[in-house]
Design a protein around this nucleic acid. Sequence first.
DNA 1: CTTTTTATATTACGTGTGCAATGTTAAAAA
DNA 2: TTTTTAACATTGCACACGTAATATAAAAAG
Lengths: 194, 194
Amino acid sequence: MPKLVDHDLRREEVAEAAWRVIGRDGIEGATLREIAREAGFTTGVIQHYFRDRDELLAFAARLISQQGSARLAEAIADHPAGRERLRALLGVLVPSSLRAARVAVLLGFWARAATDPRHNAIYLKQYARLRAVFREQVVLAAAVGAVAPGSDVDDVTDRLIAFGDGLCMRAGLDPERYPEPRRRQLIDSLLAAL
Amino acid sequence: MPKLVDHDLRREEVAEAAWRVIGRDGIEGATLREIAREAGFTTGVIQHYFRDRDELLAFAARLISQQGSARLAEAIADHPAGRERLRALLGVLVPSSLRAARVAVLLGFWARAATDPRHNAIYLKQYARLRAVFREQVVLAAAVGAVAPGSDVDDVTDRLIAFGDGLCMRAGLDPERYPEPRRRQLIDSLLAAL
DNA sequence: CTTTTTATATTACGTGTGCAATGTTAAAAA
DNA sequence: TTTTTAACATTGCACACGTAATATAAAAAG
């Protein structure tokens, strides 16, 4: 047997290079050659670990979502149920170290999900998971009195997520208007109005 | 002098064809040849009215924003200041006839604005206008008591817009979960919490 | 050492792109 | 009627793309 390589690790390595390229040049700029150059490999390597460009992009999209899930779990573990935990969850959607590149990656995948059925399916799964986590925590927050009594749980959940996504996007495209303190202030303002 | 053609009209015609293609195939699918085919022209026509592909896309982005401004003005004219008018404004961000294609166009331009400085500049101008309109109406709404006393006007404005954008995106990518009645319900729920 | 199998590298090919150059058409002005 | 010029069409080119095919390197197994 020849040189031993951790396949999953290599795939992640390539996917992360793809993110960096997408963040810099957009999805259309994420060519196999450019991704390979960014990763320090040749295109032959990428071909060895991914059937084609689309599978690589799909893998990258899935991976970014998995990492988001992990950060959601962290946020839950690190903060007590209620408003604090909701704030931490929103902080995952709108991370404090928000780079334009990160938003470019998200927007790129979302834009692709709007026209490509395969990526849309990936997106739907990701979103269902995200929403379930948020909803659960909204229920807990309501039990602790962090949500106005009488509010519909699903409404609050969807409002939270929509706000987080919108803010993430606007802030990524216009970082001067939405520096980190301003983002935190908006999140607090939103939570206070729940 | 030869045949007379309204230049602006032709440009709009081409831009609208570009939207349809982007809505169908994404921005990367919006090639000159495909846009020309969609518009019923040859690529020669497009070359005659636009310097290059980028200018065409920039024009299309500007045009879509202008039309949005017009719809905002309509919404203001048709609804009394206060909660009703805010609802109408949100209805412009999240139109009742939300097609996936429309969201694909928006996401495509946003994604491009994340990596292309020229498109980012266009986006910033658009957003400044949008925000100014919203802010003005939030002030009026507060005066009528449609906003909780003591709320910061800028906070409320940004929360409204972020929510609207986020909902528009999520709904466009997942229309089954967010049919029109659900979207209206969410908007009302948000306004009630102001 | 030889064989086998995987990782990585290289090259070539067909396709489609944006764009430039050039040709054709037709209508308005002279 | 002739000329002029904008509108539109066509063709070709250089380039970059994704991918297939193939070659080389390397390491475990016999």
